[in-house]
């Protein structure tokens, strides 16, 4: 994600786990993800999706409620981990 908006690849991955967000509705970066349909089980799947499809392995200590609060908060963590030198799992 950038200041300009949400990274399209990240949004595509995220959207699949947001069952309350119709395909034609724009994703509000500040909307609570739980309202959009992300429960704790879906969040686990989302972590694996991000790993598989974006190549970004989120460290365990980032997997908190704050991280998964909104598309913006999650996107910021994904961006930060992606920019770190060792972002892939061993």
């Amino acid at each position: 994600m950038t200041d300009q908006g949400i990274d399209p690849a990240f949004e595509a991955v995220l959207r699949r786990r947001l069952r309350n967000l119709p395909a034609e509705t724009p994703l509000d970066p500040t909307a609570p993800l739980t309202d959009l349909g992300l429960d704790s089980m879906e969040a686990v799947e989302l972590v694996f999706d991000i790993e598989d499809e974006l190549g970004v392995a989120l460290p365990d200590d980032t997997l908190t409620g704050d991280t998964f609060a909104t598309a913006r908060s999650l996107g910021a963590v994904v961006d930060r981990v992606r920019s770190e030198p060792t972002s892939s799992p061993s």
């Binding site: 799947e45 694996f48 790993e51 598989d52 392995a57 892939s88 799992p89 061993s90």
Partner: peptide, 16 residues
Amino acid sequence: LHLLRSNAGRRQFDIR
């Protein structure tokens, strides 16, 4: 757990 979450582990195991 580390194996399952590693790149190699993800190829060998279906974590779903």
